[in-house]
Amino acid sequence: MLRLEDIELHFNGRPLFSGVDLRLPAGARVALIGNNGTGKSSLLRMLAGQVMPSAGEIRWRDDASVAYVPQHVLDGSARSGGEQMRHALARALDSAPDVLLLDEPSNHLDRSARRSLLARLRQYHGTLLIASHDTALIDALCDTLWHIHN
Rank of each mutant, 00 (worst) to 15 (best):
G37P: 13
N12W: 00
L137H: 09
S65V: 01
V69T: 00
R59F: 00
Y124F: 15
A92Y: 07
P105Q: 12
F11G: 06
D103S: 07
L2P: 01
R45D: 10
D134A: 04
L128E: 13
S112I: 06
A67G: 00
A90E: 14
A78G: 13
R29D: 09
V51L: 15
P53I: 10
L4P: 02
L74R: 15
L16S: 10
Q50C: 01
S41K: 10
R122K: 15
G126T: 06
G81F: 07
L89D: 11
L137P: 07
G19N: 14
S112V: 07
Q50V: 03
D6N: 11
A88C: 05
G76K: 06
D62Y: 00
P15K: 14
F11Q: 14
L109A: 04
N35R: 15
E5L: 02
R59N: 02
D134I: 04
L117S: 03
R111W: 03
A26W: 08
I58L: 12
V66I: 13
L100E: 05
P15F: 01
I58M: 01
L4R: 03
L128F: 10
A119P: 00
V20I: 15
R114S: 01
R91V: 14
G56H: 00
S18Y: 03
L32S: 10
L47N: 09
R91P: 04
S42R: 14
V73L: 04
I58V: 12
Q123C: 14
L93I: 15
K40N: 13
H108Q: 09
P105R: 09
R115H: 13
L145S: 11
H149R: 15
G27Q: 09
N150D: 12
L44E: 09
G126Y: 08
E104F: 09
P70Q: 11
G19P: 04
S54A: 13
I7F: 01
R115G: 10
D63K: 05
R91H: 13
A78W: 04
G39F: 10
V30K: 01
N12A: 09
R14K: 13
H125C: 05
P53W: 05
I58W: 00
R45V: 09
M52K: 15
A113D: 14
G19H: 14
A119C: 04
A131I: 06
R61V: 00
R3D: 03
L102Q: 14
W60S: 01
A48P: 12
L44I: 08
A140Q: 14
I138W: 12
L16D: 11
S95D: 11
A140C: 07
A88M: 06
A78C: 03
G19D: 12
L118M: 12
Q71Y: 04
D103T: 04
R23M: 05
L128Y: 06
F17I: 12
A90V: 02
E8D: 05
D143V: 02
H87L: 14
L89H: 09
L16A: 06
N36M: 08
A92V: 03
R61M: 01
R115I: 03
M52P: 00
N150F: 02
L118W: 03
R79F: 09
G37F: 14
I58T: 00
H72N: 02
D98L: 02
G37T: 12
V73A: 08
H133I: 06
G82M: 03
D143R: 14
H108A: 15
I130F: 05
G27K: 08
